[in-house]
């Protein structure tokens, strides 16, 4: 089956039907399995195992839109103590806050990003070498 355009692919039983490459991250001692979409072209995969659904235009995100969202999110994060409900929603969408027993709390990446934006002083190092 030839695929001309990749929009939305549903692959049934991909592990056994496709050839996967094994990768090992030695530092973290973790295994990963990779499959390159190139190979879908050459693979003998049945039409029953592969469905192509074309996406509606509303569902497509542009890069500009994504950037806009991130900028809004970063600005909301800057004024984290005083944010509107809209901002809260954006931060939630970006995964910078989550709700714990109905209270909004910063996620791990939210805290990291906030620290960078506020530019908190890190440990003092000796830069003075004179």
């Amino acid at each position: 089956m030839k695929i001309k355009e990749l929009k939305f692919l549903k692959i049934k039983d991909p592990i056994n039907k496709l050839e996967w490459k094994k990768r090992i991250n030695k530092k973290k001692e973790k295994k990963f399995y990779l499959f390159n979409a190139h190979r879908l072209l050459n693979n003998n995969i049945n039409e029953n195992d592969l469905k192509i659904v074309s996406l509606e235009k509303e569902n497509i995100i542009t890069k500009d839109k994504m950037k806009e969202m991130i900028i809004k999110g970063l600005n909301a994060l800057k004024n984290i103590n005083n944010i509107s409900k809209e901002d809260e929603e954006i931060l939630r969408e970006l995964g910078l806050i989550k709700y714990r027993s109905e209270k909004a709390v910063l996620t791990h990446s939210g805290i990291k990003l906030l620290k960078l934006i506020r530019n908190k002083k890190r440990r003092k190092k000796n830069f003075m070498n004179y």
Binding site: F8, I11, K12, D13, I60, T62, K63, M66
Partner: peptide, 16 residues
């Protein structure tokens, strides 16, 4: 691997 036919992967390419 364990679930074979019941396991699906959906690849969504939503970036224009």
């Amino acid at each position: 691997k364990e679930h074979g036919n019941k396991y699906w992967i959906y690849l969504v390419n939503i970036i224009e």
